[in-house]
Simulated scan of single mutants.
Amino acid sequence: MINTQKISIDCLIIQSEGNIVSNMDGEKVMMSIHNGKYYNLGTPGSTIWDLIKTPISINQLITTLMSKYDVEKNECEKQVISFLERLYEEGLIRIVDRS
């Protein structure tokens, strides 16, 4: 699956359907039903996954993460967008139309 839409700070995102998710020692592991791949999201990734159950702006996501973790805004933004781009490329999240 090739997704060409660019993720930016203003995007509204949500989890895609079709993923089986389980908690293992505080981290999320999941399998995509669509591509048959397994993923380990790690601790920060697990927090992000929980926060994107409902549509959320990336800006709000970053603000929330900064309140949970000791991280500078620029670094948080860079890491979150990079992580979300990988999820998007794998078809694990969707960009929601704001209209």
Rank of each mutant, 00 (worst) to 15 (best):
M1V: 06
I2M: 14
I2K: 10
I2R: 15
T4H: 10
T4S: 04
Q5H: 05
Q5M: 13
K6F: 03
K6M: 08
K6A: 09
I7Y: 01
I7G: 01
S8C: 06
S8N: 14
S8M: 03
I9T: 01
D10G: 02
D10V: 10
C11Q: 05
C11M: 07
I13V: 14
Q15T: 03
Q15F: 06
E17Y: 08
E17L: 15
E17H: 02
E17F: 07
G18P: 02
G18A: 15
G18R: 06
V21Q: 08
V21F: 04
S22P: 00
S22D: 12
S22C: 07
N23P: 12
N23M: 11
D25Q: 13
G26N: 13
G26S: 07
V29A: 02
M30G: 05
M31C: 09
S32N: 11
S32I: 07
I33T: 09
I33D: 14
N35P: 07
N35Q: 00
G36W: 01
K37H: 12
K37M: 06
K37I: 06
Y38H: 10
Y38K: 08
Y39N: 01
Y39T: 01
N40F: 07
N40R: 12
L41V: 04
G42L: 06
G42W: 08
P44G: 02
P44H: 03
P44V: 00
P44Y: 05
P44S: 01
G45T: 04
S46D: 00
S46E: 09
T47K: 10
T47N: 15
T47I: 13
T47E: 09
I48R: 04
W49L: 11
W49D: 04
W49P: 06
L51V: 03
L51A: 14
L51C: 07
T54A: 14
T54N: 12
T54D: 12
P55R: 08
I56W: 02
I56K: 15
S57I: 09
N59K: 15
Q60D: 12
Q60P: 03
Q60T: 14
L61D: 04
T63F: 15
T63H: 07
L65P: 03
L65G: 11
M66K: 15
S67V: 12
S67F: 04
K68G: 15
K68F: 10
Y69V: 07
D70Y: 02
V71Q: 11
V71C: 03
V71R: 09
E72K: 13
E72R: 08
K73Q: 10
K73N: 11
N74D: 13
N74I: 13
N74R: 02
E75F: 10
E77A: 13
E77V: 04
E77W: 07
E77M: 08
K78H: 08
K78Y: 13
V80N: 11
I81N: 01
I81D: 00
S82L: 00
S82M: 00
F83M: 11
R86Y: 06
R86L: 11
R86I: 08
L87M: 14
Y88H: 13
Y88W: 06
Y88C: 00
Y88T: 09
E89Y: 01
E89A: 06
E89F: 02
E90I: 06
G91Y: 01
G91Q: 06
L92D: 01
L92Y: 02
I93A: 03
I93R: 03
I93D: 01
R94E: 10
V96H: 01
S99T: 09
